[in-house]
Design a protein around this nucleic acid. Structure first.
Lengths: 196, 196, 196, 196
DNA sequence: TATGAATGAGCCTTCATTCAT
DNA sequence: CATGAATGAAGGCTCATTCAT
């Protein structure tokens, strides 16, 4: 019983994500989402008192899917260089394999606004840069294997590339994906390491 | 008379851009734009028979502002390395100083859709990668100063970083801007050049 | 058990009255009332099969509280003049001390409608004028202490003043209340008695 | 042209009043009002940006009709006693002959609320008591023809009776109306004058 | 007896578009 | 050229009611 309830919530969230990806945040009306879920409009507003609440749930749900995926790769590594390569690879891999969630997050975060027009997710969550910054400091200060660059700006640069891939790659050619991953990993390897 | 008409058109486009940036594409209704322009709603639909047409004009106008700005820097340079540095710097500088246009383009391109939900600007214009690709080929094939990487993927990587800066930087601290430009320029310098 | 059921009913009615007074009849939804009562919406519809039924219960409950209060004062008096003064005073005192119930009645009676828009309590209950009319007839026909006026119109006049006080007086200043009571009592004393 | 625009506004207001009187404030939806006016729903929201704005217009319009009517009677009189009689008679006559407007005002004023449940017209406009208070002071302090009573409370008492007549009298029997007017006028004549 | 789930209608509002002037 | 008027669709939301458990 309780299980069913939870599933219904999640079912709606998943349907919402699907609709958002297909027709965009703006056209992802509660009516459209309900139709996709095969339920009446009231069901959606019953489980989520607001459209805002539903969209927050969409973002949370999508984020929650990424975290374990990313950690898996990071625990197996050692050096700063290896950590950075693993971070980029695991993130890109997640994005390529879960484009749906990534796009949904982007759609919601960049479009959801309050009544007076302010972006709902205006304050960028700086904490997402923390893991990268730690890796950079490890390479610069502890190992001395990284050249001297600003960790914050480099973190933003890396994330820019990762995040943009969610919308850039459309064809799911597996070869393309592996090639792209290895190229980007190499790119930031060269970009960060200290030349002997 | 004709001059007035053109000015009126451009005025509306500029006001539209302002509104789009402030409240987002979705809330940038014709009514809002007309109010901002200080004219009646009819004037807008008179100059632009469609909302779609107005939005296309917004994108064209914004793009048109970028092109001369970019070329100015590129003509003064020589080597592939210098060209790349100039390309990145001029693009970033334009973006930082014309965030309004960049954001407007992003808003419109990523949100404008047809009635059945398809993105209006779905087909990514691959031609924007051409200048970068040419620079990369010059460095790899002619000069031999660049290492061996995929020019297309590298071009997408570079543009990802440039484009994302339009939304990432909020404070207009001039020092921050210069720092960011030099860091990113250096990053891709190291990322592309062949180590001796 | 039965006791509990009754208490639960009355608890809901009291909460409904509170909600009605605070946000008005229209906004006194079953959901709001249930929330105030700290129970699920289903409990309300379980005890009252209808919103209409609940509202009727509200009116009955509120009326029921007034009757004993009014009689207490009336039994101790004698002459028509004294009866009228006691009637007005006791009614005003009840209203001032139980504004909640009075306002709830007014809200429901003046707003509850059938599906086709007809007032539910359309037919004014003429019986509420009876006690006053009897007092007037006593003063006019038996005692000869009252001047010649239409008992029905005077009864409506008196009740108008009494009923309106439920919404007019907002500050609960005790001095104000006593002053108001004595002034109104005097007013109708002068208005009804035969001048020598 | 301008004339037509004004008429359309007033036409909607009048239709709104009619609908409010017939089905009550709550059921007087913009849709219902538009249907009654024989126009599309959008026309109403075009002329009145809000339901609140429309309702304010209803109240203003209704009030505006009362003022000239009341003044006509008051200018012809002299003594405090005559002024009071004229005030009550003219007000009652207006109410009986324009019940529609009076009821509309009552419906709106006692039901229109803000989003958080507060009455829109919460602050009672004390200025409506001013004319009566002036009459009373004239009779008490200047002429000495009125007995000693609280002018404010008496003013509220008189207005209670007048206002309540808007909802109390349903049959338009002309004889009833005249009888009621004369009885109420007499009542407050006796209630205020000083007995010799 | 009690509850959460679901429904469908209705409301206010926003909006792109059309049209007569 | 420009405008105000009007339309109709769609959106988010509230709500009384029904129903299975």
């Amino acid at each position: 019983m309780k299980n069913e309830k939870i599933n219904r919530r999640i079912q709606i969230i998943e349907d919402a994500i699907q609709v958002i990806v297909e027709v965009g945040y703006t056209n992802a009306s509660i009516g459209n989402i309900a139709k996709r879920a095969g339920v009446s409009k009231g069901v959606v507003t019953y489980h989520f008192s607001n459209k805002e609440e539903l969209m927050r749930a969409v973002v949370e749900h999508s984020y929650a899917m990424a975290i374990p995926f990313m950690e898996k790769f990071m625990n197996e590594s050692d050096s700063a260089q290896a950590l950075l390569r693993a971070y980029i690879e695991s993130n890109l891999r997640f994005i390529f394999e879960h484009q749906k969630y990534v796009r949904a997050i982007i759609e919601v975060v960049s479009n959801a606004r309050t009544d007076d027009g302010e972006l709902l997710y205006k304050e960028e969550d700086e904490s997402i840069y923390e893991p990268l910054i730690e890796i950079f400091k490890l390479g610069q200060e502890v190992e001395g294997s990284f050249r001297d660059f600003c960790p914050i700006i480099m973190a933003k640069t890396v994330r820019s590339v990762i995040d943009s891939m969610g919308t850039k790659v459309v064809n799911n050619d597996i070869a393309d994906m592996e090639k792209t991953i290895s190229e980007i990993v190499d790119t930031f390897d060269f970009a960060t390491r200290k030349n002997s």
